[in-house]
Amino acid sequence: MSGMWVANGLSQDLPLGVVMAGSWQGAELAIWRSATGRLSAWNDRCPHRGMRLSHGFVRGETLSCIYHGWTYGTDGACSKIPAHPAMVPPAAIKAEVYACVEADGVIWVAPAGTEVVLPDLSGLVAVRSVTVQADVAALTRGLPGFVQHGAVWRGQVEGAAVALVVQDRGASVTLHGLGAGDRVRLSRWLDGVRRLVEEGVLA
């Protein structure tokens, strides 16, 4: 079941009241954190006119579409249609909801109802997410000595443990980096990994 869970970012990059774009396999997602910290991941499409919900805005415990302000609660159900303030939206108007959890500073998404089984990343500190224009197969070039367990690649950088959680996005890959060493050094090392992998793809 752990293969169903896809890393979609670091907790530190999704503060309270913010929405961002994400992905699960081929599906595009809107991932957002409510004012009280509740995480949600939905299909990135307002049921009204297909607008990306990741362009929307969070007020309290709701996410609203930027196009017409249609507002959805954390269960995905539409609670307000501003053009018709007196109307109670029909229950059929609902965002497609995914499961979304966070652990050890990483945000994970899976289809609703998936059992929560996540890799143990405890003891490491979140560094940053870096997107590489290459497919997963090209990663080995930039990560000599790293060992892959599912979505997680583990290795050592200057003697410190490092884990990269891979988000496969088809034409590109996002690496969510965590480590035990100095964050600035690891951040710069990640820039180097990207350069190596991409140069390999271009060559």
Partner: peptide
Amino acid sequence: ENQIPRLLPLDPGKEIPTQA
């Protein structure tokens, strides 16, 4: 540029309209 799908769906059901 950010509506999904890019094509306009003509089949009712793909998008939900209201009186507006």
